[in-house]
Each structure stands twice: as C-alpha cells, then as structure tokens.
Design a protein around this nucleic acid. Structure first.
Lengths: 254, 254
DNA sequence: TCAAAAGTGTTAACGATACACCCATGA
DNA sequence: TCATGGGTGTATCGTTAACACTTTTGA
C-alpha cells in the first residue's frame, strides 16, 4: 500500500453553494489544445475530481480535493452514489482528452460522487483573504447557476443531476439545509433556499409556523439593517439542541 | 476493456430473507486449511461477494453474483454504500487467507455493498426444484438469523450492520417491504416483518387502519386455510397502483 | 408617498395515538 | 372446550393546508 494514485478509482465532487438568491455549483474548465500549439480543439466543464491515492479512503480523497480547490476543510461532504458504467469515458471527446493528458483511454475507472454544501459567503471570504485560492492548476473554477449549465465533460451532467436529486431528498429528512446558509439567516432566506432547491413555492405563513416550532432553529435578538423594508429577524441553527433532541422527523415542508 | 476481474474493486451482497417469522441473511463459510493438508486453521462467515469484471458495472456484477448464488435474477437489489478503508483487509486472519488463495494481500480493494431482498419461499422453491442450487463452490450458503451471527470475515460485520441500517430507513419511505413477502400475505405477517426489522412492536389496530388506507395494498377474497384460529384475509401489493399514485409519502408506521 | 418585503391567525381536514374485547377455527 | 390469533371503533390531539391584510423601512 502506498501513496500512488489508483488508476481505477476516482472521486468527483458536486459542490453546491447558495448566494441568498440562487443555487450554484462549482465547476472547472477543461481545455483541449492542439499538440504543442495553443489552438483550442474544445472547451467544456467538469466537476472537480481526481483519482484517489492507495492509502486514502474515499472520504479522505474527497476532502483533499475539496481542500485543494477551495482551501476549506470543515465543510459538509457526503458520498451520494457511485458511477460505474464501463463505457462512461467512451465519448470521443473524452477519449481524445485522456490520450492527450497521457492516460490510457482503455483503463476502467469508476468514480464516487461526493456532494458538498458550502455557504458562499465563507468561500468568498477565503478567496479575498490573505491566503488566496489556488486556481486549481489554471482550470478557472467558477460558480455556475444550476439552470444554465451546458456542455459537461464525461458523464458529469448525469452525476450533477443525481447529486441534485440527492440534495432534494436529503433536505427533507436531515438538517443539511443550514450548511448552505450563513450563520445568521432570515426566515425568507431559508424559505427561498428551499424553494430554489425544490423548484416550487411555499406558503409563507405555514413555513414560518413550522420554523417557529423547531427548537433547534433559535431566533436571535438581532435584525437586518439598512434594508428598504421592515427589517427581518435573524435565526441560527443550533446543532447542540438538534443533537439533544435527536429529532428524527425533520421537515419544514411536506 | 475486457472481461478480466478488476483487482481493485469488488461487490459484497447482503441478502435478506424473511420466513414469516424472523429476518435472515444469507452467508457463506470460509475455511482456511493448512497448505496441502486438510487441517482447519480457522473457519468463519462471509457475505457472498466477488471482484467485478472490467466490462460490467457494479449493478451487473451484483446481479451476477446473486444469480450464481441463488439462481434468481428478478430480485430487488440496490447499492447502499461503499467501503473504502485502506486497511479494511488488514486483519491477520484475512491477510493469511488472501495469501493462501494466491492474492497479493497488499492490493487495495474497495467494495460496494449491495443489499437484496428475497422472499424465502421463492428461494426454497428454486432450491428444491429441478435445477438445484449451486453450492457456491462448496461454501455452504445458509440462512442465518440476524441476532445470532458471530465471527465474520474482513469488514463484513460492519457491512452487514450498515445494510440493516439502510433497510430500516428504506422501509420507511419506499415500498420495499413487499420484496420480502410472498405474493399473498396477511396483515399479521407484514406487521411482524416490520416489527422484526425495526425491533419494536406496533399497535395492531392502528397498523391495520393504515394498511387499509394504502390503495396499493389490495385485499383479496381469499383466506388462510387449515389454521387453528380465525383464518386471516390475504393481501397483495400492486405495483401498478403504486406507480400510478406515485405515493411519495409511504409509511405504515411513524 | 411609494415600493418592497416582514410579519401575523383562523378554520377545516386529516393523520396519529392510545386503548380492550369478541370471534372463528382446529386440536 | 380451549388455545390461538383475527378482527374491529372511538376519542383526543397534533399537524397540514388554504388563505389576505397591515407594518416598517429606505429611497
């Protein structure tokens, strides 16, 4: 056992972010140039991913990749599926690309899909702080709005799809929604987040009634400032209270 | 790409069965004998599993293994987790065994856990029919009652545990419970099945009220015969009706 | 003074829970 | 006639769903 990359196994990360308006996903660019020259043959988008090392488990590999990409390491991260179609890399574009970067296009690769939730504010902070973001080796990582993504590499469109499905189910039973929100958030912000994830609107009064009934969402004595309307009250998620109550039935909507 | 086994990737199947009394799991025996001789060094239990072939995806591999073991191929089967601890095969016993069967004990292997539900009656039928069961290469496949299993190989105890957890969650939201039952079953049989899976008792009247409210559990005009008490009515699951209603909230208990 | 979003309560229907006795059958 | 398990109803309570207007603020 050693630290070499395992050629048969990779992880790909679907990193969701929320900017208090819409749901985003972090993608890299893949460029294929003519050999030796700078002429672009094609350009498309990929999920951040890489092969695992022989001495790390899948979770560790996903954490490493996330850290290398964002500099963050205390982030919600979970495996949601494995993609093992023997033909998943067989597109001509992908075969061409694998050959160009010096891999054997015939090698069988299965990949574990990881999904990760990060509050955008935290990521921006990091990015503008002293330790600047690595550019992921020139691949131009950028947030993309979910409904405006075209042209993805490999089977990454499918992986992204599957992650979104997983997210939709997950928020119905576990309090992961808070991983996408800043520490302090308003009732409208969390409602909007549900709405953009699920693609449907919710009743404001009923939503707030349920919110008020969750002991682990604590309302702060603090309000918005400088907004051109009634300032909204802030709430925060208390993991302590949540763990204490071991609330199995968690749901803000039905 | 070819049909060779991939040395880095395996699947292990947790096959649950229900005999109308208790929950069982199908396990194989692993025997390690002294080289050349017949002296037994140790004997323990494993999940049925094997390496995948380079030209099959994980689902196909799991299906193949299930078929080889039981002769059944229209059975509920689903991946529930991946086990990727780099040290998962590092137990001295397991290392010894790997060496004895001619594998490199250092090779990194991750395994996908599959869980499968089969009604025991179907399996018995098959077993007693004309085409008898393969003995899975002399490994003596047998049903083991869940609370009486000791001494499992590799990390298989953990995999089994994880499968049971998955089953418990799954039956709360998807109609997989019926995969464990014969086509016709009584209200008590399905209630007992819930009880043995969840390890708690349920209220008979409330349970039957909910059962009666599920349109996709249809009551038949047929009753038990030859039992020493009021004969019970039979029910069956209608997948057609279920699909039509796309019942998202499926739960017989809360 | 206007635009924008915050905040708030009631009713009706449904689902969940708790709980105990009589009935039909074969042995 | 007995042992076994089948079958049934009601009352209480909490949850869900539908629905519209007033308030606060900055521009």
């Amino acid at each position: 056992m050693n630290t070499a990359f395992n050629e048969n196994i990779s992880v790909d990360c679907v990193i969701f972010g929320y900017d208090l308006k819409s749901l985003k996903v972090l993608l890299l660019e893949r460029h294929l140039h003519k050999a030796g020259g700078k002429d672009l043959i094609f350009k498309d988008l990929t999920l951040p991913g890489n092969h695992i090392r022989n001495n790390e488990d899948l979770d560790t590999a996903a954490q490493r990749i996330l850290f290398e990409l964002t500099g963050l390491n205390d982030i919600y991260l979970e495996q949601f599926a494995v993609f093992s179609d023997p033909n998943r890399l067989d597109n001509p574009k992908d075969q061409q690309w694998l050959a160009a970067i010096g891999k054997d296009p015939q090698t069988r690769v299965i990949t574990a899909g990881y999904f990760s939730l990060i509050p955008l504010e935290k990521y921006y902070l990091k990015q503008n702080g002293n330790d600047t973001m690595p550019d992921w080796y020139g691949k131009n990582p950028r947030w993309h709005q979910l409904d405006r993504i075209a042209n993805m590499a490999f089977d990454h469109a499918r992986i992204l799809d599957s992650a979104l499905q997983f997210l939709r189910e997950k928020i119905m039973s576990k309090p992961v929604i808070f991983e996408l929100l800043p520490e302090k958030f308003t009732a409208s912000q969390i409602q909007n987040l549900y709405e953009v994830i699920l693609g449907k609107t919710l009743d404001k009064r009923n939503f707030r009634k349920k919110l008020a009934n969750l002991e682990f969402v604590v309302s702060l004595n603090e309000k918005q400032m400088g907004v051109a309307h009634t300032p909204a009250r802030y709430y925060m998620f208390s993991r302590d209270v949540y763990e204490r109550k071991k609330k199995e039935k968690f749901t803000l909507i039905t």
